[in-house]
């Protein structure tokens, strides 16, 4: 393997890892806090997570684009909660981050812990199958329900022919 090919495959690995973490973080952010708390009991039991920052409630300015795709503008703010925690590990410490819509310190703290545990790696597979996948399924199920309900309101036009010829 040439050097540049090696470099490229390393880059691809990093990209894939970032993509996987993004997905996991998005899932944690959209889960219920009781679900995350139960999951942490199973997966994170015995681990100490020290708060680095927060959880703290604040705002993000949500932006839109003029015309839908033009220049950005400030639409309005949304409440969020953010948290960062440090998870001790054999090889050192890993810092996990979370920001979630709404004012739920417990949820933000748990999401940050899961982000840290996901990075530690030894539980990644279990997190993926026992936490991320069920959250994504629940979201998809909710979306499917709403899509189907909306689909039933689709207008089917038909043409009326009046008179002869």
């Amino acid at each position: 393997m040439t050097v540049s090919a090696k470099h490229r495959s390393h880059e691809q690995q990093v990209d894939a890892q970032i993509e996987a973490r993004r997905r996991a973080m998005a899932a944690f952010a959209q889960a219920g806090s009781t679900f995350l708390a139960d999951a942490w009991e199973r997966l994170g039991a015995g681990r100490t997570a020290l708060p680095v920052r927060g959880p703290e409630v604040g705002l993000v300015m949500v932006r839109g684009r003029a015309g839908g795709g033009g220049a950005p503008f400030n639409l309005g703010e949304a409440s969020v909660t953010r948290a960062s925690v440090r998870l001790e590990d054999r090889d050192g410490a890993v810092v996990g981050h979370a920001m979630v819509l709404g004012r739920d310190p417990d949820k933000a703290g748990l999401a940050a812990r899961f982000d840290a545990l996901w990075q530690v790696g030894d539980q990644r597979e279990r997190i993926e199958t026992e936490v991320v996948a069920p959250i994504e399924e629940a979201l998809a199920e909710g979306d499917r329900k709403r899509t189907e309900e909306t689909e039933a309101t689709r207008v089917d036009f038909f043409t009326m022919v009046r008179g002869e010829d």
Binding site: G58, L59, E77, V80, M99
Partner: peptide, 11 residues
């Protein structure tokens, strides 16, 4: 009463 943490990417 709340601090502003960030601005979102345009939706």
């Amino acid at each position: 009463t709340l601090p502003r943490f960030a601005a979102s990417k345009p939706i």
